[in-house]
Design a protein around this nucleic acid. Sequence first.
RNA 1: GGCCCCGUCGUCUAGCGGUUAGGAUCCAUGGUUUUCAUCCAUGUUACAGGAGUUCAAUUCUCCUCGGGGUCACCA
Length: 461
Amino acid sequence: MVVTRFAPSPTGYLHIGGLRTALFSYLWAKKSGGEFVLRIEDTDKARNSQEATDAILKAFEWLGLEHDGEITYQSQRDEIYAKYIKQLLDEGKAYRCYMSKEELTTLRETQMANKERTKYNGKYRDFDGTPPEGVEPVIRIKAPLTGEILVKDGVKGDVSFQAQDILDDFVIARADGAPTYNFVVAIDDHLMGINEVIRGDDHLSNTPKQIVVYDALGWDLPKFYHVPMIHNSNGKKLSKRDGATDVMDYKEMGYTPAALLNFLVRLGWSHGDQEIFSMDEMIELFNPKDINKSASIYNTEKLDWLNAHYIKNTPNDELAELLSAYGLTLTSHDKKEILLDTLKERAKTLKEMSEMVKEILDTPSEYDAKAIKKAFKGEPIPILNAFGAKLTASEAHLPSEYHSLMEEVVAEMEIGFGKIGMPLRVALLGKMGGPGIDVVMAVIGREETMLRIANAISAIS
RNA sequence: GGCCCCGUCGUCUAGCGGUUAGGAUCCAUGGUUUUCAUCCAUGUUACAGGAGUUCAAUUCUCCUCGGGGUCACCA
């Protein structure tokens, strides 16, 4: 059974990149009937906040990604970490280092001046003398000094590191006793039973350090998958400066969870030529071995297309429900079905769709200048009057009935369809473009239609 | 700078020694539509470069170039 995790540090909102690794982890766990757990890495009290944790949870809720079990908070696990620190100390696999910060800085500067790699020099690794006064020690782990550390990565393949190139006795507990990241990650992943770690490839170079911890504790390694970064259009790591990176921004902009998830699953992963994936299909078809090796550039053109696709294929009831988040109450409108059927073909976002609804339902207060020029040239008033008369005498209700009335006028006055369509359109909507006018009339009803025609006639006069 | 990763249309990608290098998106054009959008059709555009290996390299190897990541008592 696969157990995966998502382990954000609560320093802000959930961003697009984080969501994608979370999605991958979620899918992979669900595929095997396993678990997807959440761990909040809130050890840095200065930078973390409850609001950030709440924001992340809220985003998951919006998208329908549920985690399994209780949320683990690292801030509540000090005792656990302390226990393992003590164990390593007792076993001689870790030691107290009394090097002051000043001394460490001097060491680094010397190394840099000599163009050497900056690393701890192991001064206290085998120290058994009297510790210096006035220095609170940090605890360092005894890392291998030579040899190869091999990361068997499910995405990148075998990645080999030389211990002498990258390792030194890194700090696992600070002077104040607080454990450090690479240490607690290994502890938590092991204790939480996580056997498949899917995370950003910015962590690839951390992995050897974590392996050192696993080895020191005699634990089996999880399977690692390091997924490539998402870059901005400049080829750099996606950051807040790049505009919409907060997942919840996408809700506000009118994207559906299905579209966003579908978009993200295809970023760095593919299944042949398939573009559209339902959640069930994602779970069935996703496999981290098919994740790309190379970084991808974040570009939302395809998201727009997917969003339009999902809007088009969403049942009206569900659509009305989604639209309610954009201040639209449609449930009581008697032509709701007709309205949504026509609008879902043309809206790219839910927000756009809600605006389109308002444009139809609200009586136009002014007419677009260009539209007037184009539509009201010639003699529109007699035509509009003729149509108005037809309307008065009829009981038109459905789009097809309104359409018939228009055709009658066209036939009787021997004019082209555009002669009535264009002025009517501007009268009804105040501009060119938009849904079929027969549909608009059906939606707003006969009374409102006649009102708008009268308004237009008086405006032209 | 050291170490590590990556390099197919603008973008997302398929490809896993022999293909007219495929799909999607975007863009353009045409058709449908009274308008706009949808929809349909068509079209433009890619293997970073150089050496090898091979009868044959986008595919394997090496080098160069380019891009990215990471080097804390941050996560």
